Amino acid sequence: MALSPLDDHPVHQTAQVMRHVATSDRNFYDRYYFNCHAGTDELMLIVGLGQYPNLGVTDAFACVRHGDLHRVVRASRELGPDRMNTGIGPFRVEVVEGLKRLRVILEPNEHGLSFELDWEGTIPATLEPRHFLRWQERVMFDSVRLAQTGRWTGSITIGDQVIPVTPDRWLGTRDRSWGVRPVGEPEPPGIQANNSGTFYW
């Protein structure tokens, strides 16, 4: 076991260091999702950032649709010991005020999409019911999610165009979810081999 900066905070839930989650299931994840739009069809931005502690990976993406343009930026790295470090290449998510204000950043890069955006919730973050599903004795889903609507402030840069983002027009939703759900490559054949596949939404 190895310590990380998060271990100095009184947030432990198990007799483990914070970099180790309570399950060894490879599918444990911890993720952010955001969307941003002006209430019109002029632009839609989606951003996600996730950590997969038992796979040792963290990754992020941003996808924008602006007019006829569809642009995607992705980044991935080894997770390392510090789960509070959300920097992944040019991406970063900062919690300014828990459950209320966050900052989402994509620094300038070779893909022609960048932004610095501040999120402020307009309703309290709401915890959804726990999602639990067992398939042929194996736990496939055991996760929770919070959801929130809010407003954005900042700017989005696409190519040479800087788009001001002001809270009077720019809205969105976000969620945070964590737990166990199928991620990445499929499981090796075994007891799941009789699973013909199911779509979950």
Rank of each mutant, 00 (worst) to 15 (best):
E185H: 09
A193Y: 11
P182H: 06
G56Q: 01
Q16V: 02
Q51I: 00
D168N: 08
L3C: 14
Q136P: 03
T173M: 15
H37R: 13
R65T: 13
A147M: 13
L113N: 01
T149I: 13
D59F: 02
A147Q: 15
F141Q: 10
Q136K: 04
H70K: 15
G159N: 01
T58E: 10
V104R: 01
G80Q: 07
T153D: 02
C63N: 11
H66P: 04
F91D: 08
N195A: 10
L99K: 13
N195Y: 05
V180G: 00
P124N: 09
M1F: 11
D25R: 00
N35H: 10
E116G: 04
Y52H: 06
H66D: 04
F28S: 04
S155G: 05
Y32I: 02
I105P: 07
S155I: 06
W178Q: 04
A193G: 08
P164L: 06
N27D: 13
S143R: 14
L113V: 15
P164R: 02
R151W: 03
N27C: 14
L49T: 00
V64Y: 10
R31Q: 10
E110V: 08
Y200T: 12
E78G: 14
V139Y: 03
E120D: 07
D7A: 14
I163S: 00
M84N: 07
E116H: 09
S4I: 01
R31F: 11
